[in-house]
Amino acid sequence: METVSTASGRAAVRAPRSVLQHKTFRTVIYHGVVAGLGYVMLYPILWLFASSFKGRAEIWTNVSSLIPQQFTLENYINGWRGFGGITFTTFYLNSFFYAGVGTLLAVAASAVVAYGFARINFTGRRFWFACMLSTLMLPVQVQIIPQYIVFSQLGWINTFYPLLLPRFGGQAFFIFMIMQFIRGIPRDLDEAAEMDGCGKGGVFFRIILPQITPALITAAIFSFYWTWEDFLSPLIYLNAPRLYTVSLALRAFADPSGTTDWGAIFAMSSLSLVPVFVIFILFQRFLVEGISTTGLKG
């Protein structure tokens, strides 16, 4: 209660007791409501994690509890075995490969393109920029069918080429976000470097690149998330189980007509969220700023 009265430094004049009590009451109500709602929000995820440590018999008998009666790792051991003789080691390696290489390509290309749009004044710049922004609104469905036809003619079904190749062009969201960031950097430094005979490439690598690291980190996090969770493209192009990403494997694993080992399904689902939450906890600041400043969807 004291913390409340000292925290509100504006009350220079000692407030009457009743006002203070009223304030304390409001603070308690506030934290009660906000924390309560937060608990409801997180409850499903906590439940998923808790269920993954419950024994086979307990999962459907002690459903709503967040604390397992007997803590067991059995589900993780069973789940990791995967299906059809392929373990989750393979699926995780596939996912880390796809998300890692995909992110690297997308972010590197986006930075180069963003510099071109933000700092070089060339004919047609506004037209191409408008084209780029309009691709943000395009439903992917108008592109994937012809893409699929061509990629299948090339014999690239069951390879990662169809998933990774488009990333060489960067991604419109990240290009836009990095552009916004570059615009915030004063031009004086670029110009000084150009006076000293530094070309556009030199300016990009020596002046711009070191300064846009925060934007690149934000873009990399989002790119990793989206690639990690990507489902439609792997579903279309990766049909062989040995190439499955974690998302595809989970979906095949949790097929209602197939397995009934729900403990294992909960365990593998929980595990697939761990990389996402670890990155969230480590880089929360970049994420919040990234969304607030550019309106990126999460």
């Binding site: 997180l42 998923l48 990690w228 969770e229 593998m268 969220l273 994420l287 999460g298």
Partner: peptide, 20 residues
């Protein structure tokens, strides 16, 4: 609180959450 409210959104598109 902000992190707690935002957490479901970062995993929301995943298959894991759909299965859940």
């Amino acid at each position: 609180y902000r992190a707690a409210y935002y957490a479901p959104s970062i995993v929301g598109g995943s298959v894991a959450v759909a299965v859940m």
